[in-house]
Design a protein around this nucleic acid. Structure first.
Length: 838
RNA sequence: GCGAGCGUGGCGGAAUUGGUAGACGCGCAGGACUUAGGAUCCUGUGGAGCAAUCCGUGGGGGUUCGAGUCCCUCCGUUCGCACCA
């Protein structure tokens, strides 16, 4: 590139700058033609199909795959995909071999419910939805490698989902146990927790019940510590803080102790509780067990039996969600039995109450009403003892409590025997050690995380590949017999039994036992959709292979995923399950890494009228009409310009034409550059500096997903170019390259007009010269007493004295200094001068 | 209730992380070119004021030469989690 340095521009000359670029308005940019042309070319030329086996610089650019709804791809999906695609194209221009696959997460209860409503089998419905999504995804111009498109509902995919289940089963990581599910008696179906609103079915409003069914679980809790520790390992995971924080909270590690309480009528019978506050054990005035606790039966005395039975029954009838989030009013009943507090040796009553959950800790607690809000509320309601054992600095040991005192900092123990005066944090350990010596305590780490229930008593999912034989027990389906095909049946609607519809189909249900060949029965539950999506990134690179789930060499080349972009609504479940599976697969020797996503960034959510887009709210915006009117490139760029990509925002269409105008102007600039030929070659020094600053800013911003400001910087640059009537050929070319991630078809067409026979994505991202980033003069703001009073233009890095003199010479500034003396001078070179006056 | 985030013109949003608040775009106003313009091109556009100037980043207080940015406090709002012992 040849630049002529014309020195600093004289501002007074700028008034004469002519509008060198005349619009013609008619033979201009036609997005419909340009986009169709390039989409066809990309397909013909295999532009977006990297050599998966031989790529020199592989970059796996993954976006969360969509659920192919009947309404079609909406603006929220397009926002997310475009943001990811911009990044992929940027990396391509930086010389990486980018693999950007796409697929469909099409199993699950949403599809099934919709199919039930229409009375059409989802197996018929889903392909139509997918065809529509494929059409839309092509239109929006993503650089998808269509050779590797997949759907989780294809037998060629779910064969391997089932294979995955078998690997976990064989490794002892899958097991079956009875667990509660939400049951809607009206829809006769199992509901997910999020489908229960205030104890009622989301769809029909019927009160939801609790049922106990045998379910398959994966032992994710075995990995709690690793899942937690890796979050802090930057060499394995570069994730946004909001996401790692959410995972940390979900895993919910807490340190404490298990304490043993003897039952007063028989020291051999004991109740074990988990507590994070062993320091308060002297204040434990009663015990509470979960109603389902197995010891309740033997602890209940005959005169309390009736009340206890009634309470347990009532608790069981409540559905899971209202038990957890419904009425907060505490309730419970006395079992009639007493236990001995191991510290105070007091005799304390044993109660049951549904505020204690069976699936956390040991299902039993020691209640310390003085220092726990829930226990305080319960003790107050039932007139149980409240014994203070922690005192704040000024408090008297005997002072009564109006509410639970839960602070620990600065406080000390009281009424706790030899531990009086100790700080709670120290006492936790001291008391645990003291009780441990008597065999009554063990240190314990507890997690909030629970095992992953993968059973769904539904139709639309991959059948769990297990066969039950009366003689052999549960037998895994031999791998050679996979996939267990989900049969095409008409009556896929769930019924009152709580058993999957598949059980009604004898020809499918009964099979010979793989081991002894006797008649046996298939597992009729299907697996959770989160299992489908927990490994799809492994399948993409190997999707054409039908003899293995993922090829070892391909996986080693492309995984872990380089950059993964998706919604924060999956911050916990999807991302945690994927991490868990990767750890298991690594242990079993199938993959070489334990963290599947090297870099993860959450995009923001596009809402409409303040609400998430959903069909039920009737606020779904479909991109097609906007693409028809403005073109995919304008719409892509508009979505990226709306606001920060990682924050999202409210969708409105005001302003798309601003982007379209910008592209029109670039179109004309390209034409102008061609018409001017070599004569367009003069770039004034200030324009040149601005250009290099722009290249730096756009590079940095795109790198950090700051798309809105990157676009703003390009707009600013275009304004500068037009003001200075510059259309130097190479500058225009570089400008087109920088625009390409945002407006790929447009950039291709401009690139071709500029005389290139190859794709713009085979060009290189422009570099910048750090030496040219700055002008040789600087405008320094001048403050008097902290208020900005004017500005002076001085040489770059001018000495303080020079700037002060220049400031004093400026009448608008000088008048604020009249009759005052300068007490202090604060000078920030090239930025600001503050004259502090007396 | 707990946790995380956010609050800036008529609107979407910028602000090198303590240094010229409002970049860029929309909208709006005036003008140019037009048979016409919902096209295009100039110019202007935080509020008040004729002006000098003053006031302005949810409210109040503080630190600092200097605060949208840091600290305290209150209000509003969004998103998670939800009796986790």
């Amino acid at each position: 590139m040849v630049y002529r340095f014309a020195g600093p521009m004289n501002p007074s000359d700028s008034t004469s700058a002519p509008a060198a670029i005349q619009p013609d308005g008619h033979d201009g940019y036609r997005p419909d033609l340009v986009e169709a042309k390039w989409q066809a070319r990309w397909a013909e030329r295999h532009t977006n199909e990297p050599d998966l086996d031989g790529a020199a610089r592989p970059f796996y650019n993954l976006m969360m795959f969509p659920y192919p709804s009947a309404e079609g791809l909406h603006v929220g999906n397009m926002f997310a995909f475009t943001g990811s695609d911009v990044f992929g194209r940027f990396q391509r221009l930086r010389g990486f071999d980018v693999f950007e696959p796409i697929g469909y997460d099409a199993f699950g209860i949403h599809s099934e419910n919709y199919a039930i409503k229409l009375g059409i089998n989802p197996a018929e419905l889903i392909p139509r939805n997918i065809a529509n999504f494929r059409r839309q995804l092509t239109r929006v111009g993503g650089m998808f490698d269509w050779r590797h498109e997949l759907s989780t509902t294809e037998p060629s995919y779910y064969k391997w989902t089932q294979w995955l289940f078998l690997q976990l089963f064989k490794a002892g990581k899958a097991y079956k146990k009875k667990a509660a599910v939400n049951w809607c008696p009206n829809d006769k179906t199992v509901l997910a927790n999020e489908q229960v609103l205030n104890g009622h079915c989301e769809r029909c409003g019927a009160a939801v019940e609790q049922r106990f069914l045998e379910q398959w679980f994966f032992r994710i809790t075995d990995y709690a510590e690793r899942l937690l520790d890796n979050l802090d390992d930057k060499s394995k995971m570069d994730w946004s803080d909001t996401t790692t924080t959410a995972q940390r909270n979900w895993i919910g590690r807490s340190e404490g102790a298990e304490l043993t309480f003897e039952v007063d009528w028989d020291p051999d019978d004991t109740i074990t509780v988990f507590t994070t506050r062993p320091d308060t054990v002297f204040g434990a005035t009663f015990l509470v067990l979960a109603p389902e606790h197995p010891l309740v039966e033997q602890l209940t005395t005959s005169d309390q039996r009736h009340a206890v039975e009634a309470y347990r029954k009532a608790a069981a009838a409540k559905d899971l969600v209202s038990r957890k989030v419904g009425e907060k009013e505490k309730s419970g009943v006395f079992t009639g039995t007493y236990a001995i507090n191991p510290a105070s040796e007091e005799r304390i009553p044993v109660w049951i109450a549904d505020y204690v959950l069976m699936d956390y800790g040991t299902g039993a607690i020691m209640a310390v009403p003085a220092h726990d809000e829930r226990d305080f509320e319960f003790a107050t309601k039932y007139g149980l003892g409240i014994e203070r054992v922690i005192a704040a600095p000024g408090d008297d040991a005997g002072a009564p409590l109006a509410q639970a005192y839960v602070e620990t900092t600065g406080a000390t123990l009281v009424n706790s025997g030899e531990f009086d005066g100790m700080a709670p944090d120290k006492a936790k350990r001291a008391i645990t050690d003291w009780l441990a010596k008597q065999g009554l305590a063990t240190v314990r780490v507890q997690y909030r995380l629970y095992d992953w229930c993968i059973s769904r008593q539904r139709y639309w999912g991959p059948p769990i590949p297990i066969i039950y034989c009366d003689d052999c027990g549960p037998v895994p389906v031999p791998e050679k017999d996979l996939p267990v095909i989900l049969p095409a049946i008409d009556d896929f609607r769930p019924d009152d039994t709580g058993i999957s519809p598949l059980a009604r189909h004898e020809e499918w249900y009964f099979v010979p036992c793989p081991t002894c060949r006797k008649r046996a029965r298939r597992e009729t539950d299907v697996s959770d959709t989160f299992l489908d999506s927990a490994w799809y990134y492994l399948r993409y690179p190997s999707s054409e292979l039908d003899d293995r789930p993922f090829d070892r060499a391909r996986t080693a080349k492309w995984c872990p995923v380089s950059t993964y972009i998706g919604g924060n609504e999956h911050a916990v479940l999807h991302l945690l399950y994927s991490r868990f599976l990767a750890m298991v697969l690594q242990e079993l020797g199938h993959v070489a890494f334990e963290e599947p996503f090297r870099k993860f960034r959450a995009h923001g959510l596009i809402v409409k009228d303040g609400a998430k887009m959903s069909k039920s709210k009737g606020n779904v915006v479909i991109p097609d009409e906007y693409i028809d009117r403005w073109g995919a490139d304008s719409f892509r760029m508009y979505l990226m310009f709306l606001g920060p990509f990682q924050e999202g925002g409210d969708f409105r269409d005001a302003g798309i034409n601003g982007i379209r105008r910008f592209l029109d102007k670039v179109w004309h600039l390209v034409g102008q550059s061609l018409a001017e030929g070599e004569r367009g070659g003069e770039v004034l020094r200030p324009v040149l500096a601005k250009w290099h600053r722009t290249k730096k800013k756009v590079t940095d911003d795109v790198e950090s997903l700051g798309y809105n400001t990157a676009i703003a910087a390009m707009m600013e640059m275009l304004n500068t170019i037009r003001e200075s009537s510059c259309c130097e050929h190479e500058l225009v070319e570089e400008f087109v390259v920088m625009l390409a991630p945002f407006a790929p078809h447009f950039a291709e067409e401009c690139w071709e007009r500029l005389g290139h026979g190859t794709s713009v994505f085979d060009a290189r991202w422009p570099g910048y010269d750090p030496a040219l980033l700055v002008d040789d003069t600087a405008e320094v703001a001048v403050q008097v007493g902290g208020k900005t009073r004017g500005r002076v233009t001085v040489a770059r890095n001018a000495a303080e004295a020079v700037v002060v003199e220049a400031a004093r010479a400026e009448p608008r500034i000088a008048k604020f200094l009249d009759g005052k003396s300068v007490q202090k001078v604060v000078y920030v070179p090239n930025r600001l001068l503050n004259l502090v006056v007396g």
